[in-house]
Design a binder for these strands. Structure first.
Lengths: 229, 229
DNA sequence: GCAACGCTTCGATCATGATCGAAATGTTCA
DNA sequence: TGAACATTTCGATCATGATCGAAGCGTTGC
């Protein structure tokens, strides 16, 4: 029985190193980072990081882009981000409830981006608020935007009409590994995150994947979305 | 910056062994298998398989159930299956298009179950047919069942009303690693697969994850669903 | 051209974990 | 109780791959 198993093992092996896992985790916000920055987050020397990075590029998990003497690395495709989402969800489940839960950076837990959408307490709060108001239906497996949800996002200036087909699906759940509950992802989730960045409701922190909620953002999420945050 | 990265690496390490990857792949149909059977598919001796299995149970990827002197292993939660789906999707992407694509067992490619729904050519054909008829909207990221889709499945005797909430979401896409296209998953996908098994349209093969399409099944999928298979 | 800088390649070392033979454990059935 | 069988535990061996120092490469700017 030939299956995909050997390729699966090979792929997993690539993620199985703490340094490479840190690098991939760092790149989960979808932005590009330099080799030096990634060496830092991996906690290894630049030459070791370089070796890790070349393996990840070779296996097409990362793309590299040269800008002057620097090399910027980013996730190769959204598919890789989605795979990592799924793995982090399982990784966050502690098999032994007696030992203390993994210490998660409070800023990270508060608010971060997950590839292209909001995650952490903020992501879950926004999602919950939209659920409460009937803008969404969502469970761990699947999600859909209601007519009221489309109208709500439309009023915020988000144009969800796809350039190609009007019947495109917009909404999927992403299991939040820090909150252990689903939050809004998919095109609708990306649109909300884009809006929040554009209106300066959230700001990316210079390092790390966490984002800062501005005062204006706090008001907007509370008043416009009705989020309890 | 404390993140989930160490847990991610640990989890990946568990999948990174070819034997364990084979075991997990074998269990992707959601059924339970004995330790001996799994040793066979992993291509290792029973004592080695036992060591692998205990690690997978310890990390809560598998559940074990004792029946007499045998031990039956199965995936611990649907979340694990969904994670493996995502990994297989990425694993199936060949980073080097020049080398020949991984040889996939033809029976596996033809028709198999992916945890609780149909996959392979059969899964994709059924999905395509439902898309053509307007029963579904589906892309790589998200999916939704239309009113006509609900009616269609209802006519087949599938009751999609959730015991709890009526507004539950039913439908999600699962990227087929052998066909490299999405097929129907989620509760609707599981319901279709259940129906097919109950009506003897498909039969599980004694070993492996692939299923056999019966003559009656071929007719049903073609005539009832309009699947080109 | 040369210096500065970012990054990669090479080479040697070292640790982790996969493997199986042998033996022990546990379960069922007579 | 004892025999048959499935599975696990123990112990020793062996291979893979992560690591970093040193050196090399390539780009930029003076």
């Amino acid at each position: 029985m030939q299956t995909i198993a050997p390729e699966l093992a090979e792929l997993a092996g690539l993620i199985a190193d703490p340094g490479r896992a840190s690098i991939l985790s760092r790149l989960m916000d979808g932005r590009a980072q330099t080799a030096s920055e990634l060496a830092l987050v991996a906690g290894v020397t630049p030459q070791t990081a370089s070796w890790h990075l070349s393996r990840l590029v070779e296996r097409a998990l990362l793309k590299v882009e040269r800008r002057g003497p620097r090399r910027f690395y980013r996730l190769a495709t959204p598919l890789v981000a989605q795979m990592l989402e799924g793995m982090m969800t399982v990784a966050a489940i502690d098999p032994d409830p007696s030992r203390p839960p993994p210490r998660i950076d409070p800023e990270m837990r508060r608010a971060r981006t997950c590839y292209d959408h909001l995650a952490g307490e903020l992501g879950v709060a926004v999602t919950d608020a939209m659920l409460d108001r009937g803008h969404l239906n969502l469970d761990q497996e699947a999600g859909e935007l209601t007519a009221s949800g489309r109208a709500f996002l439309g009023d915020l200036g988000i144009d969800l009409r796809s350039p190609a087909r009007s019947r495109r699906v917009l909404c999927r759940p992403c299991l939040d590994w820090s909150e252990r509950r689903p939050h809004l992802a998919g095109r609708a989730g990306a649109a909300v995150a884009d809006l929040a960045l554009q209106r300066d409701w959230i700001r990316r922190r210079p390092q790390g994947r966490s984002v800062e909620i501005t005062d204006a953002g706090l008001l907007a999420f509370r008043n416009l979305f009705g989020a309890r945050i």
